[in-house]
Design a binder for these strands. Structure first.
Length: 891
RNA sequence: GGGCGAUUAGCUCAGUUGGUUAGAGCGCAACGCUUACACCGUUGAUGUCGAGGGUUCGAAUCCCCCAUCGCCCACCA
């Protein structure tokens, strides 16, 4: 293996598929319920069975995967339960469209049973694509535990919950105004209605008094419901109508008379101050209707067309057509006073995409206030934490104003409501199966409720139903409550809030401790990703082009907590280039063979063998180890990605690796302490990076021989920082760290000089360094080779300024002189030094002003003041040396 | 009508208890194929931290107000 060389560039496609298969086959993703380790569990937000992978899923699932891999390395027994949602409306609509296209059939042509067979068939054939797609991004899901919200166990949980809530009086059937989707022909919950601002009209219509004494003018946005009016209401204090309340009005376009009533609900100042009341087609009107005991005629069919009650002229017309016809007729009859342009909010069906119709009907509801109470407490008390925590406010606002949840749907694809009606007396029995006999009349024939349940009625049980609740399974005991939930803030009400309620109600315990709300991904212009805009990149294409690790890293790198992110494919170059960089570190390292078996054992290392750069990188490694651990612990994924990126690219590659080249290519390079330190850092940062970039890190871990073929980086323990005491022993002290950093400043200054003289970086130079102090000299003397390598010096001497013309680079640790026979451009050199002089003077002025401020010296932390004083002294010294050089030029 | 978020370099964004000469990536300019990497290296330029007040010795950071953009919630027909 040591003779093998890696390709010059990393090709993700060659390793990613291989590793995923290996991990899965070896069972690394599978949790042992009997493990003595502390459990850590996550349940996946189940994607719709109709779904395909989007960037949103990539972000969401990458974050979960990072936590799972991190916690596994930290020694926990991790269990990430995957699964899918049967997604009632979405799936039914999809299959209906499919059947229409393929066979020109509607669900009504097939009938309920046949249709459901078709849905299952469709599910087997086309459903669940997303589950396969998830594997391409590396998700460490416990696949043998995959669940479906419509499988037997979960269906059982749904029935159980329905029955329990019914028996507890928290589920009831009610005759109410609900949101109706005329396209899917079903009731919806309030959450499934999306309000959009629309420009429409406010029509002013005359309602003549029956006694011929004039008329009331009513303003409405929905003239087509006029046939459903059963009153006109005004505010009781409205003087315009004093004495008129109680009189009858002729309802236009009909032969009916309706009363003028007074109700507080009406705002005097809006419109004309008079409102037509249509109790069966408006939630507010319904309330008014109840208060005034009004008739509630329903004038629409379930598909949004008008019915016979709307009168022969309108029967069968679509509601929009009816609206135009009503307006036309009113105009003809001279009853239309005016038409005003009017911008208002119109509720649309989330799935159907059509305006919802408020509709009076019999539906099942869950009484929510009782369930909400403990769920509010769980969050306010901090037992459940939200990240970022501002979502708490949103959550509480909704919970404290919660309304009953309409859970029945007039669909076929879903959990059938476990309610049975006696065919004789109508008695309702809520149970898993129809009773033998009616408890009331003894009749033996029952008919099950036709309706199914809202999809979310199964989703809200997910954290425990996946472990086969209500059975008392070992999984349930071991993995519930789960630890972390990662989801989008768009389903905080649909799902998160309801899971908390269900968890507390049925398990008596919160379902998760931490909820992390992900960013919303937008396109480069800030628009939401959507099919219609065609601005939604296919993650599989991205993976094919850049690699899964690249996509994972990039998306984490650009997604700060709680902010929307602007994504475009080009950004994946960040991740791709980073993977390539690491690949090449290993490619470089393998020139010296693979790692020795004891590469992780630093116990034999002595300070005397270490170069300052070795000590410096160990200090930096310790720092990044702590940072990564803390960041992942606190869900600061974005910070973690930036920290490890900077460590590897900047500190390790740009500085350490370059400094190590002479030591490694020396005859003893393969046994030297530097190699040991190199390997230790490399192995450690591969482990630190593994949760974010699982594929390339495992591949390289193996390439390096850091573990055996049969082993994996996934199974390695999470890195621990080296103890402070041991760091002292190794001479990796803070002062060495600082001196070494100052050394790098000097290198930068020389490189700057080189650039100014347009001296190629590949041209070796003679460099003379005059250290600024004996301490600096002692330090620089420790390792000339590394310094020479960083400077690309062909000779390096410590001493006085050489005779003859030379360029000079001034830094805190000393001056560096580069003899430039015949090349020195005095004007340019003077300009460069003057610029440095100005900068130093400016800085000194800033510091002096600060230190002269009594308030600062008295109030600021002592460390800050001290640091400033040190900077001041250092900069003053530097300035003096700059001036000295300037003077030398001008003499 | 309430609530929340955003406004920092040409672009996309970091900046965690107020205290380094305000940072990164991309882009840009100059130089360089130095045997890990051109998916690279070196060097460099660029910011009145949205406007205005206030608190403080000190504000990108805290408070007030305003502006612009975005999201969520809310029954004004």
């Amino acid at each position: 293996m040591s003779e093998e060389t890696l390709a010059k560039a990393y090709t993700p496609a060659e390793v990613e598929g291989k590793w995923y298969q290996t991990w899965e086959q070896r069972g690394y993703f599978h949790a042992d319920v009997n493990s003595p380790k502390t459990p850590y569990s996550i349940v996946i937000p189940p994607p719709n069975v109709t779904g395909i992978l989007t960037l949103g899923h990539v972000l969401n699932n990458t974050l979960q995967d990072i936590l799972i891999r991190f916690e596994k390395m930290r020694g926990r027994e991790v269990c990430w339960v995957p699964g899918m949602d049967h997604a009632g409306i979405a799936t039914q609509a999809k299959v209906e469209a499919f059947l229409k296209k393929e066979k020109n059939l509607t669900r009504y042509d097939l009938g309920r049973e046949k249709f459901l067979e078709e849905v299952w068939k469709w599910k087997e054939q086309y459903g669940g694509k997303i589950i396969q797609q998830l594997r391409t991004i590396g998700t460490a899901c416990d696949w043998p535990r995959e669940r479906f919200t419509f499988d037997e166990g979960l269906s059982n949980a749904v029935q159980e919950v329905f029955i329990r809530l019914y028996n507890d009086g928290l589920i009831y059937k009610g005759h109410r105004i609900i949101n109706w989707c005329p396209k899917s022909r079903t009731a919806l919950s309030d959450e499934e209605v999306i309000y959009r601002q629309e420009s429409g009209h406010l029509w002013h219509i005359k309602y003549p008094y029956a006694d011929g004494t004039g008329c009331v003018i009513v303003a409405t946005t929905r003239p087509e419901t006029i046939m459903g009016d059963t009153a006109v209401a005004v505010n009781p204090t409205d003087e315009r109508y004093t004495g008129q309340v109680g009189k009858m009005l002729l309802l236009p376009l009909t032969d009916r008379q309706i009363p003028l009533i007074a109700d507080e609900y009406v705002e005097k100042d809006f419109g004309t101050g008079a409102v037509k009341i249509t109790p069966a087609h408006d939630p507010n009107d319904y309330e008014v209707g109840l208060r005034h005991n009004l008739e509630m005629p329903n004038i629409m069919n379930d598909d949004g067309t008008m019915n016979a009650a709307a009168g022969p002229d309108f029967d069968g017309l679509d509601r929009n057509v009816a609206r135009r016809l009503v307006v036309e007729k009113l105009e003809e009859q001279g009853l239309l006073v005016k038409t005003e342009d009017y911008v208002h909010q119109v509720g649309y069906s989330e799935r159907g995409g059509v305006p919802v119709e408020p509709r009076l009907s019999d539906q099942w509801f869950v009484k929510m206030d009782v369930l909400a109470k403990p769920a509010i407490e769980a969050v306010t008390s901090g037992k459940i934490k939200f990240h970022p925590d501002r979502w708490v406010k949103t959550y509480l606002h909704w919970m404290e104003n919660i309304k009953d949840w309409c859970i029945s749907r007039q669909l076929w694809w879903g959990h059938r409501i476990p309610a049975f009606y006696c065919e004789k007396c109508g008695e309702v029995v809520v149970a898993k199966n129809a009773p033998e006999k009616c408890p009331k009349c003894g009749h033996e024939h029952f008919r099950q409720d036709e309706d199914v349940l809202d999809t979310w009625f199964s989703s809200w049980l997910w954290p425990f139903s996946v472990f086969d609740w209500p059975k008392d399974t070992p999984e349930l005991k071991h993995f519930y409550p789960t630890n972390t939930l990662i989801t989008g803030p768009d389903i905080i009400f649909f799902w998160v809030a309801r899971m908390i309620m269900a968890g507390l109600r049925f398990m008596g315990k919160i379902p998760f401790e931490d909820v992390y709300f992900t960013s919303i991904i937008r396109d480069e212009k800030g628009r939401k990703l959507s099919k219609s805009l065609n601005n939604s990149p296919d993650p599989l294409d991205v993976v094919a082009t850049y690699g899964a690790d690249a996509l994972r890293f990039t998306i984490i790198y650009i997604a700060p907590m709680g902010q929307d992110i602007r994504y475009d494919n080009k950004k994946c170059e960040i991740g791709r280039n980073f993977a390539n960089k690491i690949w090449n570190v290993v490619r470089f390292r393998l020139q010296h063979g693979t790692a020795p078996a004891d590469w992780q054992d630093l116990s034999s290392l002595k300070a005397s063998e270490l170069r300052p750069d070795d000590q410096w990188i160990l200090a930096r490694l310790n720092r990044i180890t702590k940072t990564m651990t803390k960041d992942l612990d606190e869900f600061d994924f974005n910070d973690a990605s930036k920290a490890i990126y900077d460590f590897i690219w900047n500190e390790f590659c740009n500085w350490y690796l370059e400094s190590a080249k002479p030591a490694l290519s020396a005859p003893a390079g393969t046994t030297c302490a530097t190699l040991k330190v190199f390997d230790y850092c490399l192995g450690t940062f591969l482990k630190l990076l593994h949760p974010i970039m699982p594929f390339v890190t495992d591949e390289l871990y193996h390439q390096m021989g850091f573990c055996g073929e049969k082993d994996s980086i996934m199974l390695q323990p999470w890195p621990q920082a080296i103890s402070d005491a041991r760091m002292q022993e190794l001479g990796a002290t803070e002062s060495v760290e600082q001196l070494n950093a100052a050394k790098y400043d000097l290198v930068r200054a020389v490189r700057n000089l080189r650039a100014n003289y347009q001296l190629s970086t590949s041209l070796p130079l003679d460099v003379v360094i005059s250290p600024a102090s004996p301490e600096a000299k002692a330090f620089l003397d420790l390792d000339h080779d590394a310094l020479a390598a960083l400077l690309n010096a062909k000779s390096l001497t410590l001493g006085e300024k050489p005779a003859g013309p030379a360029g000079v680079a001034v830094s805190a640790i000393g001056n560096a002189f580069v003899p430039l026979a015949g090349l020195v451009d005095f004007a340019a050199e003077t300009a460069r030094l003057q610029k440095q002089q100005t900068e130093a003077e400016k800085y000194i002025a800033t510091l002096q002003k600060k230190l002269a401020n009594k308030g600062y010296v008295e109030h600021a932390p002592a460390a800050a003041v001290e640091a400033d004083r040190a900077h001041l002294a250092e900069t003053e010294d530097k300035l003096a040396r700059i001036r000295e050089q300037l003077a030398a030029f001008n003499s």
